[in-house]
């Protein structure tokens, strides 16, 4: 279902989303670098669960879930650090020492997702919208070529939704974004 076609970041062929027999989508979807697309569709329209999670990460695709899953007992900073794109083997993490560029990168991300002042707080104590931002931050920390964002605005306050939209536009300057959403104003 997913392959990297030449030049494009994402090439989805033979996508068929049927919902109670109604075909919602049935066309190839080609995404160029730096493009932002929104797929308007129901829950689970983009279902990548068939691919091994690690493979997705290694393909350079970051996927964000509708329901934010955070490492609740760790701080926002730790959450981002865990997501940084550096060697992830057990031995490299065992002897890992946080370098200055890494620290700078994390702070930069914190700035982008507007969580700098809450960096040492436990992830569990963020609001729903902040958790979503932290989720985006973690995605960005992985430095993906493509971001798949699933129903981001669901459950957010209007102010948060607006901030999120600006945030995504900023992000879109450097990478491709696919948003799956049914909130039309957000799109």
């Amino acid at each position: 279902m997913i392959a990297q076609a030449s030049g494009s970041v994402l090439y989805l062929d033979d996508v068929s989303v049927s919902f109670d027999g109604f075909k919602a989508l049935n066309s190839p979807l080609v995404l160029q670098p730096g493009e932002m697309r929104a797929i308007i569709g129901p829950n689970g329209a983009v279902d990548l669960t068939t691919l091994d999670e690690v493979d997705i990460a290694e393909l350079g695709i970051g996927r964000k879930f509708q329901k934010p899953t955070v490492f609740e007992s760790q701080t926002v900073f730790d959450n981002l650090e865990l997501a940084l794109k550096i060697p992830r083997g057990p031995f490299s993490t065992l002897f890992h020492r946080r370098s200055e560029p890494e620290k700078a990168r994390i702070n930069e991300l914190l700035e982008l997702i507007r969580l700098t002042d809450r960096r040492d707080e436990l992830a569990a104590n963020l609001s729903h919208g902040q958790k979503q931002w932290r989720e985006i931050g973690m995605l960005l920390a992985q430095d993906p070529k493509l971001m798949l964002v699933d129903e981001l605005a669901a459950g957010m306050t209007d102010a948060e939704t607006a901030q999120t939209a600006t945030m995504l536009k900023e992000i879109n300057k450097t990478r491709s974004v696919v948003v799956v959403e049914h909130d039309m104003t957000f799109v």
């Binding site: 690690v54 899953t69 490492f71 760790q74 865990l82 997501a83 083997g89 993490t93 065992l94 992985q142």
Partner: peptide, 23 residues
């Protein structure tokens, strides 16, 4: 160590940790 942070991440949300690219 950072290893320990990954361990706790595994404990709290195993599949999320996997999505971050950790084996």
């Amino acid at each position: 160590s950072k290893f320990g942070k990954v361990l706790i991440a595994v404990r709290d949300a195993e599949s999320r940790t996997r999505f971050l690219g950790y084996r």
